[in-house]
Amino acid sequence: MKGFNYLRSILIAGVVSTAALSAAYAEDALSMELTANKVAKDAEGKTVYLPVRNAAAGTVVQYKATYTNTINKDISDLAVTLPVPANMTFTGEAYPASAQASTDGKNYADMPLMRKVNGKLVKIPLSEYRALRWNIKLLPAKKSADVSLNTIVN
């Protein structure tokens, strides 16, 4: 439950960064809608997404952000970031799969994240991932792009 409020606070504070737009222009040019959905299976075994406000430990929750270009001009080189909420663990599932991950919210790299332990490269546990970032090369005028990540409630 704390994870939901944490993510909303972070997103409201502004998790969108742009390389090609000034901050004021980016704020006017881009809107974002965030949804949190429980990931479940229907009677036929197909994955379904159900709106959720509170979730018990072990529940898989997908956070999906829809970024909409609200102006009549294309936006280039847009970087969008979603934090992994506190009290939640990233499952390794992200859309688009081109997401980069971070353990500190500042330094990003392709997944899986790796580090040296005793001279060997090993995968960093998903529980240490704190944020994901997607680079959107082009967001056409008046169009939208979706990004999402799945988490498990701790």
Rank of each mutant, 00 (worst) to 15 (best):
A24L: 12
A26W: 10
A26H: 08
E27C: 11
E27R: 14
E27N: 13
D28H: 15
S31G: 10
S31D: 11
M32E: 15
E33P: 02
L34A: 03
L34M: 09
T35N: 06
T35W: 01
N37Y: 03
N37P: 02
A40N: 09
D42F: 11
D42V: 05
A43P: 01
E44L: 14
E44K: 15
T47L: 06
T47S: 06
T47I: 13
V48Q: 02
V52R: 04
R53T: 12
N54R: 13
A56Q: 13
G58I: 13
V61S: 04
V61K: 08
Y63C: 03
Y63K: 02
Y63E: 04
T66W: 00
T66G: 02
Y67H: 11
Y67N: 03
T68V: 07
T68C: 05
T68H: 05
N69I: 06
N72A: 15
K73Y: 11
D74Q: 02
I75C: 05
I75A: 05
I75Q: 01
S76L: 11
S76C: 05
D77H: 14
D77F: 15
L78R: 07
L78D: 06
L78S: 03
V80S: 04
T81Y: 01
L82H: 04
V84K: 02
P85C: 05
A86G: 09
M88Y: 05
M88K: 01
T89K: 12
T91P: 02
G92Q: 01
E93Y: 12
E93C: 09
A94M: 00
A94H: 01
S98Q: 12
Q100S: 07
A101K: 01
S102F: 00
T103I: 12
